[in-house]
């Protein structure tokens, strides 16, 4: 039992390390905070989110997020606060707008074009086959 507990602690240690204790009033507030900081990018250590990063700036920004929650701001307002300062780059899910169309729809376009090419090529080859070759496997 103790081993399991230790293992669990080791598993979640990285979360505890980065996040300083904050006076949440209930669990719902804490869950909301965790979800919010997990979706915001730390601009110092760019491949980490605010939840995981232990950079001093990330800590400051977490506190600012918490502060805004206490002031009764919505998630959208809090994200807007950071976007006004650091740009869309802080959002792990950037907004859909003309500059990000390629980012959002590019992969789907590539898949569709690829599927189209495969389809066309298969059809062309099927047509290129001689008519009497179709039953070739059945013939003795």
């Amino acid at each position: 039992m103790r081993v399991v507990a230790l293992l669990a602690m080791a598993l979640f240690a990285h979360v505890a390390l980065a996040i300083e204790p904050l006076p949440f009033k209930d669990e719902a507030e804490q869950v909301r905070f965790q979800r919010l900081v997990a979706e915001l990018r730390c601009t110092v250590c760019q491949n980490q989110n605010l939840a995981d990063s232990n950079a001093p700036l990330a800590k400051d920004l977490r506190l600012r997020v918490f502060e805004k929650m206490q002031q009764g701001r919505t998630d959208a307002e809090i994200k807007q606060f950071l976007v006004e300062r650091y740009g869309d780059f802080v959002l792990y899910r950037p907004p859909v707008k003309p500059q990000t169309w390629l980012l959002w729809f590019g992969p789907a376009v590539v898949v569709l074009v690829g599927a189209g090419l495969v389809f066309a090529s298969v059809r062309r080859r099927a047509r290129a086959l001689p008519v009497d070759a179709k039953g070739i496997e059945d013939s003795p």
Binding site: T43, V44, P56, L57, D60, L61, R64, R85, Y86, G87
Partner: peptide, 13 residues
């Protein structure tokens, strides 16, 4: 000292 003005300026490095 607290870094708040820096954050307002979007300072990250």
């Amino acid at each position: 000292e607290a870094g708040r003005t820096g954050v307002d300026f979007g300072v990250y490095g």
